[in-house]
Design a protein around this nucleic acid. Structure first.
Lengths: 337, 337
DNA sequence: GCAGGTGGCGTATACGTTTGCAAGAAAGTA
DNA sequence: TACTTTCTTGCAAACGTATACGCCACCTGC
């Protein structure tokens, strides 16, 4: 025996007004007399009424849902991004509809399914929208923000990290500490700010005269891969004295490989730099020098961009590049020895 | 200029049928002639029509959304649980509505907000539903499953780990390897299967005659806390030769504290056992003996319970306790020395 | 040829809101 | 007092779908 559900009609009857009045009582800024509003709200609370958001969405052709498309879950410590994003959006009265990218080819479908639910906006973490899908979104006036990606020419907003600036800092750091042969290890070419970092490192070292990039490897992702990779690198004729990895876990794999498998000392024989500043980087056993990832700022910025687009859909697309810098620990050489 | 949206009416016109036929074409098992269905589907695809799920939900008073209430995000490596859950539910045609528990007092509100969206079911990770809320859910016939919690007497389904069985294994393991003084460190009393583990360890060691629990501390959560805690324990008169921690990261803090701050050898001076088998546990620098957490099975079971309740809402509440066991690495003593 | 059954289809209503419109009330103005 | 202007309010028409109901066509078996 299902409990009879309470609709605006019940509230209207109890309060002695029309359903329209009930609707207005729940619509901020609607034209309604304070006394009526009070009466309606009281009736609503005695009945335990809450407006049916589904019916509202149908009518308004928009819900309070924000679609969240996630990919690369483990690579980058996105838990925090996800948690923060959901918390911030909730705080602004939105709900999160989460979807995992299992198959890149199907992103269009995923977005389509979210559109079915009349999502008010779209957040895409660590994945790029195919141009056609992005165009479709802008056409529908759906505010869209890419996190950790730059949607070149798609008209989407984006929040990411200034990779070029960061790459320059890293290069300077390594050069200053008299490194001569640098290896770059990245995961899948997933995150384009990381590409910018790598390019900047290559360019700046190339002009330094004292330091050069001797290896630039793709597809090195995670602890095991890093650990294997460093052995491979040290089997070559020319060995690195500095390694930059696109993920902390890869970097820790490199450190363990160097110490345990190769018997090297860190940082004397090899400096290691990670990226992301995830929890293990700070642990005593690792003390990894790494790049902080401004999770709070990224989320704050993304939410800000979203909310401003929801208010005024005609704003120009905006790309925000945040600054970040090295967190120096014990996995890299001192300046003067 | 917004693109005109396509409704079932447009499809009906193009196909030369009524809207009812269109609806039936998209409803599996509806009474419709194959030829008509084909015609409708063709018309739909030329127009790019997809049924509006919001309107459908309004009509059916149920959506394909599953509410997901998360708490304790970082404590337990729930990313994978979250990812798997979203992937499995998607595979069955459901969408995930994610909500973060910021304030335990407001869980009722959170659930209320999800109910607004006519969620078809509820998954609660690592949090317990207040009895009143749980009762409300069962009253509405909303399938509900608690993950990592046991909803004693709430009538909710639950999936968790058999803590008593696990605790016995751990106790036996420690006793067998001639440990005498055990310390137990747990985080917030958050996860009740962990309490069962602790109780089982205490009981079984108590009857062993050779081994006893000399400390049982609450609120030790994460690397830093573990690292501080082990120093504190070793400043006492009676020091442990074995530690079990409710989280891997705490255990790694204990290891680093013991080695770096106290100069102890692991496992010679101290055996350390963690819980969760998160990535760092297997790293060469730690080699932590720990308890596996059957993430895949937990998710699979939870989804299974949910789907079966969606089919038949009158099934009895079910509590599944999964078995798990130790992953033995190098942070614990060998058997015979 | 006819009664009874079956399967396919359209009509019309319901789902629970929001909102344009117009009318009525209240309040300000000359 | 009469005439505007400004607020409130209710009516009614959407929003896009699902489905109960009834109708018709067709088939079956006698």
């Amino acid at each position: 025996m299902a409990t009879k559900r309470i609709t605006s009609i019940d509230v209207a009857n109890l309060a002695g007004v029309s359903v329209a009045a009930v609707s207005r009582a729940f619509t901020p800024g609607a034209s309604i007399a304070p006394a009526t509003k009070k009466r309606v709200l009281e009736a609503a609370s005695t009945l335990g009424y809450q407006p049916n958001v589904i019916a509202r969405s149908l009518n308004k052709r928009s819900s309070q849902l924000v679609g969240l498309l996630m990919s690369g879950w483990n690579n980058f410590g996105y838990v925090d991004v996800l948690r923060l994003l959901s918390e911030r959006l909730e705080a602004h009265g939105y709900e999160v509809m989460l979807k995992s990218v299992l198959d890149r080819e199907k992103i269009g479908e995923y977005v389509g399914q979210m559109l079915q639910y009349q999502v008010a906006a779209l957040v895409v973490v660590s994945e790029v929208l195919p141009a056609a899908v992005a165009a479709d979104c802008t056409l529908r006036g759906l505010p869209t923000v890419l996190v950790n990606r730059i949607g070149r020419g798609t008209g989407s907003c984006a929040v990411s990290v200034d990779g070029t600036n960061l790459g320059n800092s890293i290069a300077d750091f390594l050069i200053e500490r008299r490194h001569r042969r640098i290896a770059l290890l990245r995961g899948r070419a997933d995150i384009d700010y990381v590409d910018d970092v790598m390019n900047a490192i290559k360019e700046r070292t190339a002009t330094s005269g004292s330091c050069e990039v001797i290896a630039d490897l793709d597809g090195v992702l995670g602890y095991e891969a890093g650990r294997r990779c460093i052995s491979e690198l040290f089997s070559r004729a020319e060995t690195p004295d500095g390694v930059f990895c696109s993920y902390d876990h890869t970097a820790i794999g490199v450190m363990d490989g160097a110490r345990i498998d190769l018997g090297l000392s860190i940082p004397e024989d090899l400096s290691v730099i990670g990226n992301g500043d995830r929890a293990p980087a700070s642990w005593g056993a690792h003390e990894l020098t790494t790049v902080g990832y401004p999770r709070d700022e990224v989320v704050e910025k993304a939410v800000h961009i979203l909310l401003s687009r929801l208010e005024d859909p005609d704003l120009e697309p905006e790309t925000a590049l945040l600054k970040t810098d090295l967190v120096i620990r014990a996995s890299t050489r001192e300046k003067s020895v």
